[in-house]
Nucleic acid binder design. Structure first.
Lengths: 223, 223
DNA sequence: GACTCACTAGAGTATATACTCTAATAATGA
DNA sequence: TCATTATTAGAGTATATACTCTAGTGAGTC
């Protein structure tokens, strides 16, 4: 593996573990057993590493959240979307911790992240739309759908911080992918009132899969 | 005003402005035109300042979110609660930015914040309960009410980060209390499906008050 | 064999950070 | 009055951080 890629990989791992704030370029170099000079040969500065990680994050989420087109969605699709988003969130989980400082340090990142959020929101909106076509949720007016999509986004992106700050007993807080995915329970709680009567039972059953305390993560695959 | 209080006040102001990460004890001392030694005479370390600010934050929110007792609530009460919570959030807005690092730096804060969140969640839960008594929202089972309360909390505590990261055009992002309170629009969107038919119109009207883009903030006072 | 060039080591720099120490001054109370 | 205590200034320390600079090394090419 090329040094440049190893730097990205190790940075991501250390950032996820301890937060970007706590990890210096010297830490990264030390972990890789390379010299700081070597690291700075491959990256102009720390912000460039973060930015490149953002691009990878963005690419992954964009790919999985690709517009569902115009075909109606079935329930398994909903589960699949949720799993995919939480997977992405998990892999780049350092990112949503003090995002504000990251954006303050890099205007490219600020602009890129603004666009990224916009695409995510309209993707969620589109998914709502196609879930309505599939008869799973009742159709809503556009402004309401947008506000709902934003709420979903707010719950998704804040769920991890909640777990690591309000719930954690350990010091520092550690987290597993399974715990993170309990956030899906919260998202489905959010959508529940909008589910059509005939789909209420199946959605409740799906939701139950992610109930906090339940540590069986069934594989929800489709598509 | 006593130096100790001036340190707290200025720290809060600078933290809110630029984030705790970017503000050193030397910055605080410089802003106050006192010596670093003087600052450290009043506070053992930076974490102690943060902790004391947390105690004030906690006290304020606890006060305003005090259990609504057992009397039913009217719509104005709901508006009042939302305004109060967002006011508290605004006044100590540095806090929910990289909260994780703050908790990592101080075990007292971690423990205190865990309890605090618990109290907030059960307060929200209780408010739901009394809104149901007041005929404003339809009664729900306890587990559903808890999950709803958590979603409300997640939206509230993440709304500011959303504004400052996804929406901001300036660099660094600045924010006004009025913009922040547009988060109430999101919270009411969340509660809308649970509102009883007879209260749907009034709640929609209240919600409209906070619609993003609308910059008139009517004073919602009661109690 | 000389030359190039991507890559690497490692010492070093300027600056910032959290925090300490000593000595001086102001307030207080007997 | 005078001693005690609270408060302050200001220089200083140890450490960390992001980043730079120079001097290579080794694999390939003509």
């Amino acid at each position: 593996m090329k040094t440049r890629d190893r730097i990205l990989q190790t940075s991501l791992q250390l950032f996820n573990q301890s937060g970007e704030r706590a990890i210096s370029t010297n830490h990264i170099a030390a972990e890789l057993a390379i010299s700081p000079g070597n690291l700075y040969y491959h990256f102009r500065n720390k912000a460039d590493i973060v930015y490149e990680l953002f691009l990878a994050y963005q690419q992954q989420v964009d790919y999985y959240l690709a517009a569902p087109g115009s075909q109606p969605l079935v329930l398994a699709d909903l589960a699949w979307y949720l799993e995919a988003v939480f997977d992405g969130l998990w892999q780049y989980r350092f990112f949503h911790r003090d995002l504000e400082s990251l954006l303050d340090a890099d205007p490219r990142l600020r602009a890129g992240y603004g666009d990224f959020t916009g695409r995510c929101l309209s993707a969620i909106n589109g998914i709502f739309n196609q879930l309505a076509s599939g008869g799973i949720i009742t159709p809503r007016s556009e402004p309401l759908r947008s506000a709902m999509a934003l709420n979903v986004w707010l719950v998704i992106t804040n769920w991890m911080a909640y777990l690591k700050t309000a719930h954690a007993t350990e010091e520092p807080a550690v987290l597993s992918l399974a715990e993170l995915k309990q956030g899906i329970y919260q998202v489905l709680t959010l959508e529940l009132p909008h589910v059509t009567p005939e789909y209420r039972e199946p959605v409740l059953a799906l939701r139950e899969t992610y109930r906090p305390g339940t540590f069986c993560q069934a594989a929800h695959q489709s598509k």
